[in-house]
Design a protein around this nucleic acid. Structure first.
Length: 504
RNA sequence: GCCCCGUUGGUGCAGCGGCCCAGCACGCCAGCCUUUCAAGCUGGAGAUCACGGGUUCGAAUCCCGUACGGGGUACCA
């Protein structure tokens, strides 16, 4: 609880914009907020920041909430659950006049003004500044207009925005909980827009008004907001409000140290779900990007992460999203999964169009599948449709296609292999009981009898039964395939070799 | 251009002035186990702690500069 640097309960928020598919980096921010809230026994609030009407994407809000739910990040206030500060969608709050009222307060107390400069004028201004190699930015043209001038502009039909009046001198300092004091020279900042001409607030105004009203105590957000924070601090001062504690989290980078983007693979969180990663994996993995518990534990449950979380464990350096490690971790979680749960995940993957071959009828036999799970359990990293179908296909197929060349093991030829397989088929047909241990005993005896190494006989059998060199343990496989089908496969493999032999 | 943030093996992290000629994990290599693969176990390679100056009896750890990376510089968030 030492993280509570303000009195009262911790209240944090995740405030996404519905402008696209929720990005892993974005959800990582949400996750850290959630973990912090849960650790401190505070509240986690979700607020939709849909103030940019141009960039809105249909369905994005739904997918954001879906991603949060998938990760297990439940919110105490926000869309769907309501709360004392409802609504939690900024476009709805705008209808209530929250932002226009706030902007008016700033105008009234001299911290903001209306500006009627046209986009054309601003563009020309920027062009000129670029040509003169000067920093681009608004020149405060409307800042000192009189009331009369403004009214005249507006009566001419010029639409107005509201700009914040940035102090001409002094220094803006804020204390970042992670990075320490950060100071800015406000004269480098321009009078920025807080209320757009369409009546919507910009992010700067909207989030401050809402954070204040919703009594947010800590703002954990991505590093790219550092440069905007001085504006926010000035606005808090303009309103006479107490700012929250700022924590600027490191950003996520791709393996080439560039910003994590599509060319590095999936960037949308839900893509990982669809590719066969577990929510527990992503939760654990994301938590460790830019945070560490201070000890050497890496595989941790949600509860452990919540318990161990501390803002002091955050790292300001950017984190690289390492897919290889994610895969390893998913394997760890997959191995922890109970058999029936894993079977439940495997079934849809196998039944998918890119799963088992089309000729295999669906739905597949769940009980049979469940019996196969122990054979592949510790061999899985990701529930990838094709990979899983490849790994388990021969159990479901009526017939398999064996490559004769694969059957012949080191130190053997076609003839010896064919006769060994025939002997093996006889063992399969007669072995009692038809169980893995008993079968192994019988086949080891057969090895001795035929003067073959176990690797030779077993290798040939593996290919005969599965058409693969790499497969689950042999005798378990034999039992799972069944006595009759196994014998049949081994006999036809032998026949394959004899046929080839006579042809040569 | 200007402003801001960052920089520990290939990767993720630990380290918060002496316990560190740097620890853990992933990956890689080898061995063991073994019917293949995987898992597991054991061992190994891999870092002049970006570079250069300071401060200090002592620095990966504090300060300054440089380089590199990233972010910002919008009526986007």
């Amino acid at each position: 609880m030492s993280d509570k640097s303000t009195p009262g309960p911790v209240r944090v928020r995740y405030a996404p914009s519905p402008t696209g598919d929720p990005h892993v980096g974005n959800l990582r921010t949400a996750l850290l907020n959630w973990v912090f809230a849960r650790h401190a026994g505070g509240q986690f609030i979700v607020r939709i920041e849909d103030t940019d009407r141009e960039r809105m994407v249909d369905g994005a809000e739904g997918r954001i909430l879906e991603a949060l739910e998938w990760l297990g990040l439940d919110w105490d206030e926000g869309p769907g659950v309501g709360g004392p500060h409802a609504p939690y969608v900024q476009s709805e709050r705008k209808e209530l006049g929250k932002y226009a009222d706030a902007a008016q307060i700033l105008i009234d107390n001299g911290h903001a003004y209306e500006c009627t400069c046209t986009p054309e004028r601003l563009e020309q201004l920027r062009e000129r500044q670029r040509a003169e190699k000067k920093p681009t930015g608004y020149d405060s043209y409307c800042r000192n207009k009189s009331h009369e001038e403004r009214e005249a502009d507006k009566s001419q039909g010029l639409s107005a925005v509201v700009r914040f009046k940035v102090p001409l001198e002094g220094e803006v300092v804020f204390n970042d909980r992670l990075r320490g004091p950060v100071s800015f020279d406000p004269s480098l900042l321009q009078d920025f827009v807080i209320l757009k001409s369409d009546g919507f607030p910009t992010y700067h105004l909207a989030h401050i008004v809402d954070d204040h009203e919703m009594e947010i105590t800590h703002v954990l957000r991505s590093e790219e907001w550092i440069s905007s924070t001085p504006r926010h601090v000035m606005m808090y001062e303009g309103f006479g409000w107490e700012p929250p504690v700022f924590v600027h989290l490191s950003i996520l980078l791709g393996p080439d140290r560039g910003k994590l983007s599509k060319r590095h693979g999936a960037t949308a969180l839900l893509d990982y779900r669809d590719q066969g990663y577990l929510a527990d994996t992503l939760f654990n993995f994301l938590a460790l990007l830019g945070w560490s518990p201070g000890d050497d534990d890496e595989v941790m449950s949600r509860a452990e992460i919540v318990e161990k979380f501390s803002l002091d464990g955050l790292n300001a350096a950017p984190s690289i999203f390492d897919l290889t490690k994610l895969q390893w971790m998913n394997g760890v979680y997959l191995r922890k999964l109970p058999v029936d749960a894993l079977a439940g995940m495997l079934a849809p993957a196998l039944e998918a169009p890119d799963g088992l071959p089309a000729e295999i009828s669906r739905p597949i036999d769940r009980d049979y599948l469940a019996s196969l799970v122990p054979l592949v359990h510790e061999r899985l990293k990701v529930i990838d449709h094709e990979e899983v179908a490849d790994m388990l296909g021969f159990f479901f197929q009526a017939e398999i296609e064996v490559d004769p060349a694969e059957l012949v093991q080191k130190g053997m030829d076609e003839a010896t292999t064919a006769s060994a397989l025939k002997s093996a088929a006889a063992v399969i047909e007669s072995a009692e009981p038809y169980e893995p241990d008993a079968l192994e005993e019988r086949f080891r005896a057969l090895c001795a009898e035929l003067e073959l190494k176990p690797g030779q006989l077993f290798g040939a059998l593996r290919v005969a039964l599965t058409a693969r060199r790499v497969a689950p343990p042999l005798f378990d496989t034999m039992v799972a395939i069944g006595r009759e089908r196994s014998a049949e496969r081994v006999r036809s493999a032998a026949a394959l070799l004899s046929a080839a032999g006579t042809r040569d």
